[in-house]
Amino acid sequence: MSLAKRIIPCLDIDKGRVVKGVKFLEIQDAGDPVEIARRYDQQGADELVFLDITASNEDRGTLMEVVEKVAGEVFIPLTVGGGVRSLPDVRRLLSAGADKVSINTAAISNPEFVAEAAYRYGSQCIVVALDVKNAAKKDEEPRYEIFTHGGRKSTGIEAIGWAQKLVELGAGEVLLTSMDRDGTKSGFDIKLTRAVSDAVAVPVIASGGVGDLDDLYNGLVDGRADAVLAASIFHFGTYTIQQAKNYLADRGVVVRDATIR
């Protein structure tokens, strides 16, 4: 008996639909979020992550409806993020049925917000989402930096120290996305994943770049991630969650056997 590594499908939500793009471009429709959430739950997903990528504020209400609906019938942890900037934002999402809230850009302009949210609602429900890119030139040692605006804008902040700082402030989990790999299907950035996993005491979710089941294995074993996040390979039916778990279990990774009785 031991703690299982988690498989987490990620649902990017735009105007109430699940969408998937490559490096935040070329957005494709992947379906109805409630239906998809239900399907992943039945397949044995360990958690679900919803990221609101809606640009305009008036469409944000649709996300609340989605979360409320999913939380009424899917009883696994739900993390919701995208545009979370204030304590009222956190409260609204928790009230809608989110179990954890993911904070991204707001942590950069105001790291104290992470501390306030963790103090008020508990570290267990505060996830910090880090979008990271290697800013080093070719042939140089990697220099990982925090990026914003879908990976287009550098903040100049060094990523590993930043992760440690946000954990010290109270973040309970780190959602780590390699913007170099996101949407490429070429596998996680293992060096980055391992560096962050080794640097913080809280769980790390690896994200960005999954193309096949071997990539999941590498992220969990070589990258030492506690959980792996993937979208396309599940949305477009390349693999089911159950297939991913069977594959990992065969290679000796502890996963939750979620066969529905």
């Binding site: 008996m1 031991s2 703690l3 299982a4 590594k5 988690r6 360990d46 696994i76 942890p77 570290s123 267990q124 309970g172 989990e173 005491a201 809280v202 769980p203 506690d226 959980a227 939750r256 056997d257 979620a258 009785r261």
Partner: peptide, 29 residues
């Protein structure tokens, strides 16, 4: 890691109606 976060198994240390229809070593969050 600490916190202990995620799915782990629970060994049922005795028979009890609270365990009705729950398989031994089931996973909980």
């Amino acid at each position: 890691k600490i916190p202990h976060m995620g799915w782990n198994q629970v060994r049922q240390e005795r028979h009890h109606p609270l365990w009705k229809d729950i398989a031994p070593d089931s996973w909980f969050y």
